[in-house]
Design a binder for these strands. Structure first.
Lengths: 210, 210
DNA sequence: CATAAATACCTCCAGGCGGAGGCTTTTCTG
DNA sequence: CAGAAAAGCCTCCGCCTGGAGGTATTTATG
């Protein structure tokens, strides 16, 4: 059974070689934890396989035993960091779907390096071949848009969001605006991330509310 | 006089060593033209200094004579490609400011590699040091937002755009949405770039129009 | 038109990178 | 407890960027 089969099977949806032995799984997590530290300290370019390996006291080739490529490792790091962010902030759900995205953006920019990692990987995903991040982000975008579309439809029926626009379009717009604003904010914090995203939120208010 | 002085002076706002001799300026343009071809063909990672140099029949060191670094060269390539895009499509100005951005996005995704180059450079700009693209995109975002803010204010006064939201916030949102959607569209063309951006346009319509 | 400066380009090198292939040790399973 | 599978790790390869130091060639200028 190849690792690809395992990737697509339902029991082990993990990026990289799965590690069926308990020790390997633990080591994998250890690598991701160290890797995100290195990324935070040294940025995308500074996060070479050798640098991560050095932080763990092994050679860079050891990492390629757990992940097929540097890119795949970075995707796993992002997923790991995002999951941790969600863990630390579960249980908090605003009324409207759009505000979920607003708050996610606020959290993102507080995790050092996370937005940079995201941008780096998205850029890599646009590369012609680049199977690792391309498939990850394609399905990620799909899932987020779908979830958001459903929530928006519910909000529209509940009269919380204006219904003269297609929920599907708005979902894509929210994701785009959120992603784009985080980048702008990192380059120029004076734009006010929260106010700007709230302005978007206001655009979606139903006409009756005005 | 250093190259930085020339950058900030008003007579020669060019990225990289300016080349005060006419021949040098022509050669510079030649490099950029070839570089964008290479980028289109081989993607971001495949566009090494050596590969561009090979396409020109020179060594990679020759390129470093015109540009301080690979990153600076790529920024110049983007600027060049964007300028060419505008040249080929001047004279066309929609009524509302938001629609200018909508059409710019449509044009961007038609130039192969342009969005990828943009994303790559933005990711590089978020790197801690990264002086080359960081300063370029910081000022670029500032300029675009400022221009857009002014246009939006005019539209608001003319009753073309609702005036219950701050033009400054909307400007940042438009840029973010446009950038973000181009990426989503490249990964999943089924989202419909034009319709989605038109949905945003609709959100900005004044209440009277509904 | 001579000549000094700027330009244009080269070769070679240092340091770093991702990845392939191969080797031993540990761990699980029948 | 055998032996297959997984883990753990290294050495070597080719490619990359950036830069030092050198040499023609072109240009501007007295």
């Amino acid at each position: 059974m190849s690792y690809l089969d395992r990737m697509t099977s339902d029991d082990a949806p993990v990026i990289g070689r799965s590690g069926s032995y308990a020790k390997g799984v633990a080591r994998r997590r250890e690598i991701l934890d160290r890797a995100i530290e290195v990324f935070t300290e040294r940025g995308a370019d500074g996060t070479s396989l050798r640098r991560i390996a050095q932080a763990l006291g092994v050679s860079h080739a050891a990492l390629l035993h757990y992940f097929d490529s540097r890119e795949q490792l970075l995707v796993a790091v992002y997923e790991h960091a995002e999951a941790r962010r969600d863990e630390e902030n579960h249980g908090h759900r605003p009324e409207r779907a759009v505000d979920v995205m607003v708050e996610a953006a606020m959290l993102n920019v507080e995790v050092p390096g996370l937005v940079q990692l995201y941008s780096t990987l998205v850029a890599a995903a646009l590369e012609a071949d680049s199977s690792a991040s391309k498939s990850f982000f394609t399905t990620r975008f799909e899932n987020v848009r779908e979830q958001l579309t459903n929530d928006l439809r519910r909000d529209q029926e509940a009269g919380l969001v204006r219904d003269d626009v297609d929920a599907k379009d708005v979902a894509a717009l929210i994701v785009a605006a959120s992603d784009g604003l985080q980048i702008q904010w990192l380059l120029e914090p004076s734009i006010g991330l929260q106010e700007t995203l709230r302005a978007f939120s206001a655009l979606l208010a139903p006409p009756a509310a005005r």
